[in-house]
């Protein structure tokens, strides 16, 4: 079941095509990472989903139905370029923005109060926004985004400008929202947080979809077949015996040495274990799973035809 289907969306600006037949399916209840280098078209796509701009062609389905103006109330959006009215008081401003999202005054007030308590910012209610620090303002913006309990949440670089404590607070809230059934689209350059949060991703590069799917699938798809082995024994001995079938990329000699060994195509890890068990004392045996950071760089660089250091 998908909450959002983006189908072959095209968007042209005067001199370039911002999105070229971009498709992605966001499963209901997932945290979906929308990735891509700067200028890839992420913000344009997000704006199209928010109906700030319209696509030139292609369509977007929300819960299986064509996206319309009414869906605005069911989406919460935290833009990357975000700000607040500086001269306006925090309480008044959050109330205003909540009402623009279709909430009643009373309902907005009640929910705001409970969020303010949760974030321990009650005392800010009557402060002007310009009196708050940037991090404080971002807390307020986060509350505004999630206050109307939207089914779809779109966060564009949500953690920039937060200290680690508040990043954790936010992550905690994002997981809680997910548990309550919200679907979250998460656009970021911070690959560590993608690994930590996302279960699906879509990687856009130069206006086109490069990768799309479950994070676990993509990572195994990008698997390098590298095994890290910790062993006790003579590295030369290991080298001379394994080199016929396996490619030993490097060995760090120590009391317990580590070796990076590449499995040939079609070879299962057990075969290596069998070989190794004759040669050395195995202390550890791990498959090296590529990080999202590596995947990102490899995918983007190979798409632009560059030679990468991994191949």
């Amino acid at each position: 079941m998908h909450l959002l289907n983006v189908k072959e969306v095209v968007k042209d600006f005067q001199n370039h095509r911002a999105l070229n037949k971009v498709s992605m399916d966001v499963p209901t209840g997932s945290i979906f990472g929308l990735l891509g280098p700067n200028g890839a078209g992420k913000t344009t796509l997000i704006r199209i989903i928010n109906q700030i701009t319209a696509p030139d062609s292609g369509e977007i389905l929300f819960n299986g139905k064509k996206l319309t103006r009414n869906h605005i109330f069911r989406i919460g959006y935290l833009p990357e370029e975000r700000g607040l009215y500086k001269k306006m008081k925090v309480g008044e401003q959050t109330l205003y923005l909540a009402q623009l999202k279709g909430m009643s005054h009373a309902e907005a007030r009640k929910k705001l109060r409970s969020w303010f308590e949760k974030f321990e910012i009650d005392s800010w209610w009557n402060k002007r926004v310009e009196e708050l620090s940037k991090g404080m303002q971002q807390k307020v913006q986060f509350i505004i985004t999630v206050l109307h309990e939207p089914e779809l949440l779109i966060f564009d670089e949500p953690f920039s400008g937060f200290d680690p404590i508040n990043v954790n607070l936010l992550k905690h809230e994002i997981f809680r929202l997910k548990d309550k059934g919200a679907t979250i689209i998460f656009s970021t350059h911070n690959m560590a947080s993608v690994e930590e949060l996302c279960d699906h991703i879509c990687l856009i590069n130069k206006s086109e979809t490069l990768l799309s799917g479950k994070v676990s699938d993509i990572r195994s798809q990008f698997s390098t077949n590298l095994i890290q082995v910790g062993f006790e024994g003579d590295p030369k001995h290991l080298r001379s015996h394994l080199n016929k079938r396996f490619e030993i990329q490097e060995i760090n000699e120590n009391r317990i040495s580590t070796a990076m060994i590449k499995l040939p195509e079609g070879c299962r890890p057990n075969e290596l274990i069998t070989e190794l068990s004759y040669l050395t004392e195995i202390h550890s045996f791990n498959e090296v799973i590529p990080g999202m950071n590596d995947i990102f760089i490899r995918a983007v660089e190979s798409a632009s035809g560059k030679k990468t250091g991994y191949e």
């Binding site: 928010n50 989406i75 833009p79 607040l84 623009l100």
Partner: peptide
């Protein structure tokens, strides 16, 4: 200009039409 420079405009136009 105030709405543009304070960058609140994108938050607002995700709720109402420009």
């Amino acid at each position: 200009i105030e709405e543009k420079t304070s960058r609140i405009v994108e938050i607002i136009v995700s709720s109402v039409k420009p």
